[in-house]
Simulated scan of single mutants.
Amino acid sequence: MAQPAFEEIVEDFEFLEDWEDRYRHVIDLGKAMEPLPDALKVPATKVEGCASQVWLHMRPEGGIFHFDGESDAMIVRGLIAVLKALYDGVPMAELGQVDPMAELGRLNLQEHLSAQRSNGLRAMIERIREQA
């Protein structure tokens, strides 16, 4: 059920055997994202429960789910990029079929994130599910 962009990340992770290389790859994914306009960094888009500053802007367009995000922490910005690859472009009617924990489990992220980062990742997923 994962989007092609997410499948590409899974393939990259399979190629990168060392977790430090994977960590750098996640950071690079975040760096490659377009910055979120300051006008969208408002309380309504801010995600509570994250140790870092996190904003997610979600919008349906023509029945398709889209979102963008930003964080002041490089690794969190990378995690947003991973979630964007997982969710962006999914038809609204199919959002409930995405199992984010199973999909992210394919990357073994949970094993390598601090408790704070894991909590923040869960908070971002919850926000996406609430908004969707």
Rank of each mutant, 00 (worst) to 15 (best):
Ala85Thr: 09
Pro4His: 06
Val76Lys: 04
Asp38Val: 14
Met74Gly: 00
Pro35Glu: 14
Gly78His: 01
Glu11Thr: 03
Val26Ala: 11
Ile75Trp: 03
Lys46Ser: 08
Arg129Thr: 12
Val26Lys: 11
Asp72Met: 06
Ala51Lys: 14
Asn119His: 09
Pro35Val: 06
Ala44Ser: 14
Val42Ile: 15
Glu7His: 06
Arg59Gly: 05
Lys31Thr: 08
Asp72Phe: 09
Val47Phe: 09
Val82Trp: 06
Arg129His: 10
Glu11Trp: 00
Ser118Arg: 14
Arg77Asn: 15
Glu17Arg: 13
Ala32Leu: 02
Leu56Lys: 09
Ala102Ser: 02
Met1Lys: 12
His66Phe: 14
Glu111Asp: 14
Ala132Lys: 02
His112Cys: 04
Ala102Trp: 02
Lys31Cys: 07
Gln3Ile: 09
Ile64Ala: 11
His66Thr: 12
Tyr23Val: 12
Leu121Trp: 03
Arg24Glu: 12
Ala73Met: 11
Glu103Met: 08
Ala51Val: 12
Ala132Val: 05
Tyr23Lys: 14
Lys41Ala: 10
Gln131Arg: 13
Leu95Thr: 01
Lys84Met: 12
Ile128Thr: 01
His57Gln: 06
Gly96Cys: 06
Ile80Phe: 01
Phe15Thr: 13
Glu126Ser: 03
Ala32Cys: 06
Leu107His: 04
Glu8Asn: 06
Lys84Leu: 05
Met92Cys: 10
Met58Asn: 04
Leu109Cys: 05
Ile80His: 03
Asp72Asn: 15
Val26Asn: 11
Ala102Met: 04
Met74Ile: 01
Tyr87Lys: 00
Glu11Tyr: 00
Gln116Val: 01
Ala73Lys: 07
Leu95Asn: 04
Glu61Gln: 14
Ile64Gln: 14
Leu83Gln: 11
Leu121Val: 04
Glu11Ala: 12
Phe67Glu: 06
Pro43His: 07
